[in-house]
Design a protein around this nucleic acid. Structure first.
Lengths: 204, 204
DNA sequence: CCGTTAATTAATCACCGTCAATGAAAATGT
DNA sequence: ACATTTTCATTGACGGTGATTAATTAACGG
């Protein structure tokens, strides 16, 4: 005999919409550059409305981070599905990494670029960060198992990750010199590293 | 017959001290996270004092950026001086890059990590950014000229830069998995890329 | 209409950049 | 020694914006 509470779907929909916009604004104007007032204005609601869906601003940040982590993991998890050739799998993995950073630069910056505060205080995201890393190192592990690469999988995974991330980072920061695009750069990096870590008779 | 103005050295000293602190705070709390009030409080002076040494807040940002760029260029410019072996020169270059990021992480973040000021809005720093890049690509050019590496120097320089920057970026962001340190990671990367771009009989 | 919930508005408190007014400091001329 | 003059630095105030909460209004189902 009263107005019914919002359906859980409606709640989730609002949270999703807010997180999406918040993610963009954080990636563009930095962690401290997000204001509830500007956010709600762009969202078309009053600046007190989010307090029905989130405890406070910190809670919004937490939700945004969770969203970004989940998307990143999903983007690279099935990148190499259906590919039999080990080399093609590695190329697909690094290409998927770049594609994610290009199609969702805000999410990528949020994860790998901006050093978000609360990283040490909020350990609830350690598992999500760890999962992404395990997907990545697992793919490198398969490449080693298949005989495509040699070396300690963790070390090789770090080298690949650092190099690809570096290219993506420079691209997002507009540091790449004119005429160089990130796709060919990552392709060159992948090819070079595949060559460097290939199995050979006489170790270097 | 009056109180003499501050000596240029004293002025420069204050500006230096302020820029140093501002650099730290910008790297930690972001470009917009710097407040004159907190800055001056940590500096031990009143919040109006900086207006004797800088026009406004924008002017402070300009000085901080100039300082960071100059230090970076100086750090890598003479990294390979006195080394005759081309391979040793490349190792010295990447090692100097990492050492700068470790000893002056705030300056490094300001230059390569936080892309906030934007070289489109503030074109006065494009020359400084360009100079650093020219030092880097010049060193790679020498390696190509000496026969250590083959390929387009600009492309090779990008690959080396992206990879080393990626390792440094992950290190500063505390993303490296426990047990992996950035020095050995960059060493591995340098070794791998030197191997990948070495001259060989049968091109890949 | 009533009760309940959602959403908006108003209000509180804190902080920031900037500048005018004010006080302190220091060297010179007497 | 003292007053004067120029410069330095602090304080206080203003206009603006931020987060957050209390009070108010609108929306909906019985």
């Amino acid at each position: 005999m009263a107005r019914p509470p919002l359906s859980p779907e409606a709640v989730e929909q609002f949270r999703q919409r807010l997180c999406e916009l918040a993610m963009e604004r954080i990636a563009e104007h930095g962690y401290d550059g997000l204001s509830l007032r500007g956010l709600t204005q762009a969202l078309g609601c009053s600046y007190a409305t989010p307090y029905r869906y989130f405890r406070d601003k910190q809670d919004i940040f937490a939700a945004v981070r969770a969203l970004a982590y989940d998307r990143f993991a999903a983007a690279i998890e099935h990148a190499a599905d259906g590919m039999g050739d080990p080399e093609a799998r590695v190329y697909a993995l690094t290409a998927a990494y770049v594609r994610f950073a290009q199609t969702a630069p805000h999410a990528y910056k949020l994860i790998c670029e901006l050093g978000l505060p609360g990283r040490d205080e909020h350990p609830e995201y350690w598992p999500k960060e760890r999962r992404s890393w395990e997907i990545w190192v697992g793919e490198i592990q398969s490449a080693v198992d298949s005989g495509l690469l040699v070396g300690d999988p963790v070390e090789v995974a770090h080298v690949f990750w650092a190099s690809v991330h570096g290219a993506v980072s420079l691209h997002l920061g507009r540091k790449l010199v004119l005429g160089v695009d990130v796709d060919t750069l990552v392709s060159s990096i992948t090819r070079s590293l595949l060559f460097a870590y290939q199995p050979r008779r006489s170790p270097q």
